[in-house]
Write a protein that binds this DNA or RNA. Structure first.
Length: 273
DNA sequence: AGCGATGTTCGCCG
DNA sequence: TCGGCGAACATCGC
């Protein structure tokens, strides 16, 4: 589930495995992952190879759900990853260990490989020359972990949209998706369809701190639901799941075109008390 | 066998 | 202008 914590864990993984090794070859299985300004996909794959082969990864950055790898090119060049709904990375040596659904494979001079995995082939991989410019073009808001309380208050105040929608809106806050917005709202005891302008100043501040806590805790636990604290909803976030705190059956409600899971006992609807 | 799924983009509507 | 909604994208697992 590649949201901010998942991508951060992948960034650290890549940072500790695949840096400073010359890339000797690149195999592209799913060309659709590489965006193309023209309609013909072949030249972009060739261009991607030309930009990458012979280079090495030098450092990494993350903004929201996007991962940037700076390469040792002439001038600044970054490889950008987006993992869609099902993507991931795996660094391995023996080709027998090549993961299923590998879509792009980087070969390093030391005999290791880095696989970009994507079961559903939704995702993106491209070369850019500046992170700030890219963030601007993609109209991404500040990264959720960099967002200040003041910025968060401004995002919420006077906004009629639902809180969950706002948390997931990448142009306002970058990095939070369906799963972590549910977790944040569960921890903050807010009903998912609550509108931002129904939250008081204190509640907004509480939500802000909860957002940071949830994301940081998830990163500390390797974004692995099995390692999450006992009171996290994420491992129970499915049909038939129960609240880890009070045992109530979880409910599901439509928000935008997605589903939110929540505890009807602990996430009260506004005006009901 | 059909439906739902962690993501983004785009167009339509009130 | 803002926000909600739904389709499209690809494809697998339940």
């Amino acid at each position: 589930m590649p949201e901010l914590p998942d991508v951060e864990v992948m960034r650290r993984y890549l940072q500790s495995t695949a840096l400073h090794q010359e890339i000797t070859d690149l195999e592209v299985g799913a060309a659709r992952l590489i965006p193309d300004e023209e309609t013909n996909q072949d030249p972009t794959v060739k261009q991607l190879k030309a930009d990458i082969i012979g280079r090495s990864f030098e450092s990494s950055r993350r903004h929201g759900k996007w991962l940037f790898i700076r390469m040792n090119s002439e001038g600044e060049k970054f490889l950008v990853f987006h993992f869609g709904m099902t993507g991931g990375l795996n660094y391995f040596k023996d080709m027998d260990d090549e993961p299923e659904y590998t879509q792009v494979l980087f070969h390093f001079k030391n005999g290791y490989q880095l696989a970009y995995i994507s079961q559903r082939k939704l995702g993106e991989l491209e070369i850019i020359d500046g992170v700030e410019k890219f963030v601007d073009q993609k109209k991404l808001g500040p990264d959720a972990l960099d967002l200040s309380l003041e910025e968060f208050k401004i995002l919420c105040e006077g906004r009629h949209a639902m809180v969950k929608t706002t948390l997931m809106d990448q142009s306002k806050i970058a990095g939070i998706g369906n799963v972590y917005s549910d977790e944040i709202l569960f921890q903050a005891k807010i009903y998912p369809r609550t509108q931002c302008d129904q939250l008081g100043g204190d509640k907004i501040e509480e939500l802000y701190h909860t957002m940071k806590d949830v994301l940081q805790t998830a990163i500390d636990r390797q974004a692995d639901p099995e390692q999450f604290p006992q009171d996290f909803i994420t491992p129970h976030r499915h049909k038939g799941g129960h609240c880890p705190i009070c045992g109530e059956a979880l409910k599901r409600v439509q928000v935008g075109s997605r589903h939110a899971y929540y505890c009807p006992n602990r996430q009260e609807k506004k005006g009901k008390h």
